[in-house]
Design a protein around this nucleic acid. Structure first.
Lengths: 208, 208
DNA sequence: GCGCTCTTGTGAATCATTTCACAAGGTAAC
DNA sequence: GTTACCTTGTGAAATGATTCACAAGAGCGC
């Protein structure tokens, strides 16, 4: 299959969210135009995005809300539970551990790790903070698929290396530093200071 | 001036971070190739990005680290302090209020708001949580430039409307829902569940 | 069945971004 | 000053993403 652009995957995710809302409201079908209006895009974009994966609609009628939901969940790999470990129990790590938005979509936080003995043993929303020494053995034992990195920038690369060696294939990084991973491992980064800097740029250039 | 792509601004921000590291290490000049290596891009990309804003380098030599840092800070609007209000003192709002990465780059959290009386009056890292009723009057009084929205999805749009009416021109949204703002206001969103779904897609499609 | 209306799926065209490739300009050694 | 060597800045080419536009189906009323 042809490689799909990240922007497309991002939109599919958004479409799924809207479909779930529509389903909750009891709607049976939805057109590409209605889906586009929700997501701030165009009907052609919606149809093109879906066309990479097949034909899901009926001409003249639109898409079956439930059938398309199911297909999108399948495409995105959301039909199953993903086990997530969080590395770093500081402010961000703790907030992530307690965030309901993950659980609701099939992502289960199975463990949280920290270096600081003062934090080890505490409970965050039902998950006990463990010592980072147990990282490698736990990842195998708990069958963790995804790691969230929420440690200071200086420590991030070494912890990424450790979770990769332990078998994790997908990482979401919150440390404000660029990281490298070997081929076959997917790394994404969320950098909140960077987002604010983009806003700063927009503020000083809003007049053109 | 021609409109600059967001991807370009994002990279400029990254370059600035590397330049600061280089400066701390006592380096005087840096080439586009060295800058590119740090940021995982190419030297041509670095030069093209900078060329939108002027000529900063010397042929045969590269860029002056300190001069380019200064120019980038100017371009990004980081030479000044931006006042930030956080709306929502739940897990995410609290983590944001206490995050040092903002302060270090000129973003000052001047106020935090919540609906819940149990949270109002608490202190988060030196900033008192205030009642949302005071939102409008405070934004004017505190000269807030940027609002971070960290409330449940259902409440997000109405709070965006309120901060926009109060004069905020830049918003960073953490609620997992699409929002609309009038022209002249910049809105960006960080959706952590969405990031995990993109990882999920990568995991189930890693074999092609 | 026929005509009317609606909406999909998709090549082609447009628009945006990245990469290439190289002339021009600058440094440094001798 | 001349030569050898670097690195920038930038048009042009290539690649990638979005939008356009329309033929092909599908439902519905009569």
């Amino acid at each position: 299959m042809k490689r799909i652009a990240e922007s497309t995957v991002r939109r599919l995710s958004a479409y799924l969210r809207f479909l779930e809302e529509f389903e909750a409201h009891g709607h049976q079908t939805i057109s590409s135009g209605e889906l586009a209006a929700q997501g701030g895009t165009t009907s052609a974009q919606v149809r093109k995005d879906l066309s990479f994966f097949g034909s899901f609609g009926k001409r003249g009628l639109g898409y079956s809300v439930s059938a398309l939901s199911t297909s999108l969940r399948e495409i995105l790999g959301l039909g199953r539970q993903w086990n997530v470990v969080i590395v770093g129990a500081g402010k961000i790590g703790a907030a992530l551990a307690q965030y309901n938005g993950f659980r609701d979509r099939g992502f289960k936080v199975v463990a949280v790790y920290d270096f600081d003995p003062a934090r080890v043993g505490r409970t965050l929303d039902g998950v006990v903070v463990r010592d980072q020494k147990e990282l490698e053995s736990d990842i195998a034992k708990l069958k963790a698929h995804i790691a969230l990195i929420a440690v200071p920038a200086e420590a991030a690369q070494q912890l990424v290396d450790r979770v990769v060696r332990a078998g994790v294939k997908a990482i979401l990084n919150f440390a404000p530093t660029p990281l490298t991973v070997p081929a076959g491992v997917t790394l994404r980064s969320v950098n909140m200071a960077l987002e604010l800097e983009i806003l700063s740029y927009a503020l000083v250039n809003s007049d053109d």
